[in-house]
């Protein structure tokens, strides 16, 4: 692999750090369970997936790469399923989805001086 693999891994790990941070920020920024789940599960999945891609680029042998591929496949199945189960529970317990309020201040027109 050499330098190319390390470069790919570097990019993947940087992406993972960015998306992971975004997931945590979204978890605290949004007010209701659905939106929090959107941010955290989606960005978390992408972050972990990026880390796996980086590991795949650094893998030393074919056996390890094959194992990583199997782990990635299981992760791609299990992660959205986990998010879906939490969302389904929230939906079944009747939580109303949050709507952002339109806070449109009355715009002051320069030609209508009150």
């Amino acid at each position: 692999m050499g330098i190319v693999g390390e470069f790919i891994a570097l990019i993947a790990f940087i992406a993972a750090a960015i998306f992971g941070t975004a997931g945590i920020v979204g978890l605290y920024r949004f007010p209701d369970p659905y939106a929090r789940l959107q941010a955290s599960s989606l960005c978390g999945t992408t972050a972990v997936f990026s880390i796996f891609i980086g590991c795949l680029a650094l893998a030393s042998s074919l056996a390890i790469a094959a194992r990583l591929l199997v782990i990635i496949m299981f992760f791609l199945i299990s992660s959205p399923t986990g998010g879906h189960i939490v969302a389904k529970f929230a939906w079944n317990s009747g939580i109303d989805p949050w709507r952002p309020e339109r806070t449109e201040r009355p715009r002051r027109r320069w030609w209508k001086r009150a």
Partner: peptide, 8 residues
């Protein structure tokens, strides 16, 4: 994920 980042 990028779209979600922008929305955030």
């Amino acid at each position: 994920s990028v779209q979600m980042l922008v929305a955030l």
